[in-house]
């Protein structure tokens, strides 16, 4: 089954467990400033929104890269940066409409969500299921189920 990250902002409490898990997975330290998922707090609306790469099928970053440093992980479908190839030119960061691929001055490479090779640490760490890793063809299933439950035929007696 092809899976993808599914984000439900309404459930997010802003605890940043996901940011810590992500940075720990990728750098070995708890360090939100190196997290590839970011949680935004729209304070006066009372909304928190976790945001990261949604792994476009036609990925702008991948298409823009002049040295072919971004590859598709066949198992997960993730667009993955090959550190050995990336020259840090940042063209992909210009191409990506969502801002989810960013340069790191510490490594001199770009970085983005790679789905942790198929076991996303953020989804694992999230205490509220605001981030889940589910069947990419049926991310709407849960919402459909909720509406289905409310739906009935008027004729039923």
């Amino acid at each position: 089954m092809q899976k993808s990250l599914h984000i439900d902002p309404g459930k997010c409490t802003g605890c940043l467990q996901c940011e810590m898990a992500c940075s720990y997975e990728h750098t070995g330290a708890f360090n939100p400033s190196r997290s590839l998922i970011k949680v935004f707090d729209f304070h006066h609306e009372g909304r928190k929104v976790p945001y990261t790469c949604t792994q476009c099928a036609e990925a702008w970053c991948l298409n823009a890269c002049p040295v072919e440093a971004i590859k598709i992980d066949a198992a997960t479908g993730a667009k993955v940066v090959l550190d050995a190839v990336c020259v840090g030119c940042k063209v992909c960061t210009i191409a990506c409409p969502f801002g989810t691929i960013n340069y790191s001055h510490e490594t001199g490479k770009v970085q983005k969500c790679d789905l942790c090779g198929g076991e996303p640490a953020c989804a694992e760490a999230c205490p509220t299921d605001a981030i889940t890793y589910i069947d990419s063809d049926w991310t709407g299933l849960e919402r459909m189920r909720k509406w289905a439950q409310k739906t009935d035929s008027a004729a039923r007696v």
Binding site: C15, Q17, M20, K48
Partner: peptide, 17 residues
């Protein structure tokens, strides 16, 4: 009440917004 809010790293989230 609009929502609850967690402090850093907190999986309880008692804070009120």
């Amino acid at each position: 009440l609009v929502t609850n809010q967690a402090c850093f790293g907190c999986t309880i989230a008692c804070g009120r917004i």
